[in-house]
Nucleic acid binder design. Structure first.
Lengths: 351, 351
DNA sequence: GTGAAAGCGCTAACAC
DNA sequence: GTGTTAGCGCTTTCAC
């Protein structure tokens, strides 16, 4: 245990159970309050001897500056907030980590929260962060309507949206090219001879899902292929729903010979379904995932870079915090098609 | 845009670029400061009419309570900190998410940071969280020496360690039974006829790695099998090192017929090595991981539950925060052997 | 080089 | 029901 109060000095000890303050340190070191503040913050103008006395008192008392008080005076908290759907999702975890890394370089702490894709919870989280006066926010929006953020933006909270655009709000934005990525993925299947291709993805209310559907339709149109509505299944990504739709599409009268999946979770579920099947079905998934290369067949994907998404978003954020007064930027990151086998399977029955 | 300042009322407008305060709201609503505080905090004793005027002013000004000031008075911040190795690691991500969920239920916000397995960084992060006066801390310790935390504990910061014990500090602790898990995993290989079994794992300075090695040795001793030192490779978990050690063990004169791997990252690397091999080598890995069941052969694992680790740790934390003055607890969670195929392969060459 | 005083925005305690 | 006052622990300003 660190020694908490000296005995016999006659100096006041900090309240029991509370924490020592600069005042306590000042009393113990027999200097003024401001001198302690100087030492704690590394400001110049303190003699080496005085500094030593202050440092000794700090150690003896176990003093730790109270940043709440500091923030109250200084205005800036040195922390940024990140709100996304689910921290544990393999797509968002590296994004979060990347934001944290950039924040660290800028001396800021990251506070993050999961919205669970619930607009009310997103709002609640964001406002809690604003009440804590984070200097900036990185948001993967769940809701459609972000007008609740207007007072915050007006008050100077730097805000960057990632992965999806916010509902009608001018702010920095970093996106992956979902349309182009999906189009190239589906075109890849077409190039390998497929004419009946299904798409399974997230709820079309989610921007990325809608864009990927648009990319699918564009690739089909490019090849002058018709799209049957039974080949399109966007919605809830619960494994049961996805598995049911996949099963439906690959069985029956004129089954699809290839599937395009809208994100990593959907892809994994579909891989499970296809593994049970006698007949091979080609597959291209949006999002890369670990072990995709070790499955049989290895899974061809349209890869995006979640770490870069986070890095670029954080970089934009700190550029704003450093005072850049430019108009909002919109950054679109490219995807990369990674052929591994599943996307190069030919149509099964010589259609 | 929300209207920022009324025109023609003659009331003071908040400073430009700053944020409106309760005082500003009070002026605009023509009530006292305390009345605003009552409304903002949902305290009783405000007439419906007054309340409406205050709420209107809040909306019009875009007021948001400044929690820094609030914390300064109240002492508690309503936030807890989590420090672990890497937020993006598939083992820690669900742990973090579980802590977040419990925190949310208790109305607290989670601030988390990655230590990157660097004791200095862990310390820096923890102290930054303490300066922000988090009410409690959940720590996956990277370092050996946690005496720097003593003043914080003395000041009443509730602290729970997870996954690994801290260096010489009495605090709540939630662990997985690494020893028992490893012992059962290796015993499983022995039961399937293996006599030359290798172990590849993390640096033995890490508590879980040391415990798993101890479990391995215990299982071998139980079966009266010798352990050659060339079968033991603990250290850096960089893929290159792990792959080199795995390759060394499964080739050469008297190769091992089975491997036990110390965590999910190591397991995945070893799976990659074994996939290149002509000869089958049995494998049991510590930690479950996604898609383990879809590999060929499917990977047998000793599963632990990272979500439960986080949940239990957070539960202990909030129990302390709610004032339980019990002595520190140590909780050990059991593991579960999940046979899937790779661990049931017989020794290859009829040894 | 050092320190005293004011005040950041809020809540607690106590008036009225 | 409502308002006034003091003060949380720090930084800013300015005086010595």
């Amino acid at each position: 245990m660190a020694e908490i109060a000296p005995s016999g000095t006659g100096l006041p000890a900090p309240r029991y159970g509370g924490r020592p303050t600069m005042k306590d340190v000042a009393a113990r070191a027999e200097v003024g309050l401001k001198t302690v503040s100087r030492v704690v913050n590394g400001e110049p103008g303190v003699s080496p001897d005085t500094e030593r006395r202050v440092r000794d008192a700090i150690t003896a008392l176990g003093f730790r500056r109270n940043d709440s008080a500091r923030v109250l005076r200084k205005g800036r908290t040195g922390s940024v907030g990140l709100v996304l759907e689910d921290l544990a999702d393999p797509f968002y975890a590296p994004l979060s980590r990347a934001v944290e890394e950039v924040a660290r370089i800028h001396g800021a702490l990251l506070i993050n929260g999961s919205s669970a894709e619930d607009p009310a919870r997103e709002r609640e989280l964001v406002l809690a962060l604003c009440a804590r006066r984070v200097d900036g926010l990185v948001i993967v929006p769940a809701g459609e309507d972000h007008r609740y953020l207007e007072p915050e933006l007006a008050a100077g909270v730097a805000t960057v949206f990632v992965d999806r655009p916010p509902g009608s709000l001018a702010a920095d934005l970093v996106l992956t090219d979902s349309f182009g990525g999906a189009r190239s993925g589906v075109a890849h299947l077409v190039a390998h001879g497929h004419r009946r291709i299904g798409i399974i993805g997230d709820h079309p209310g989610i921007h990325t899902a809608a864009e990927r559907l648009r990319g699918y339709r564009a690739a089909m149109a490019d090849a002058e292929l018709p799209v049957r509505e039974s080949w399109v299944a966007l919605g809830d990504t619960a494994p049961e729903r996805v598995a049911a739709d996949a099963t439906r599409m690959v069985t029956g009268e004129r089954p699809v010979t290839a599937l395009f999946t809208g994100n990593n979770r959907v892809t994994v579920t579909v891989v499970r379904v296809l593994a049970q099947l006698a007949r091979p079905v080609a597959l291209v998934g949006f999002d890369d995932f670990e072990l995709a290369d070790l499955l049989s067949p290895p899974v061809t994907v349209v890869a995006q870079d979640p770490g870069r998404l986070g890095r670029d978003a954080a970089a934009l954020l700190f550029r704003r915090l450093d005072g850049a007064g430019e108009p909002p930027r919109r950054v679109t990151l490219p995807t990369r098609l990674v052929p591994r086998g599943s996307g190069e399977l030919p149509p099964y029955d010589g259609e």
